[in-house]
């Protein structure tokens, strides 16, 4: 969890108020599902993506950007930051 804490602080430092960061406890399935469906309504992801995210990708320390899954075990915090940067540009 410390890794995700460091990533969190890096994102805050880099983007501040430009980004709406949501931190969710995995017990809170309704909130996570509501977030994913919100992204569908905003046209960011499709329903199939929601199913994949909820059932396979919502792992411990998972990071999603606009509903898209950014990290898995192979990505470092720096790589995730780069992906966010690409998305923001």
């Amino acid at each position: 969890m410390e890794d995700i804490g460091v990533l969190y602080q890096q994102i805050v430092k880099e983007y501040g108020d430009q980004m709406d960061l949501i931190y969710a406890d995995p017990r809170n399935l309704i909130s996570i599902a509501a977030y994913m469906l919100g992204q569908v309504l905003h046209g960011k992801i499709g329903l199939l993506e929601v199913v994949k995210n909820l059932f396979w990708r919502a792992r411990r320390g998972a990071v999603f950007l606009n509903g898209r899954w950014l990290n898995d075990r192979t990505r470092t915090n720096e790589e995730i930051l780069t992906l966010i940067q690409q998305e923001m540009n």
Binding site: M1, E2, I4, Y8, Y23, A24, D25, R27, I30, S31
Partner: peptide, 15 residues
């Protein structure tokens, strides 16, 4: 700190 002190959306925090 992204661990204990984390600003959280109110709906999420209520959950």
């Amino acid at each position: 700190d992204g661990i204990d002190f984390v600003p959280t959306n109110r709906f999420v925090l209520w959950g």
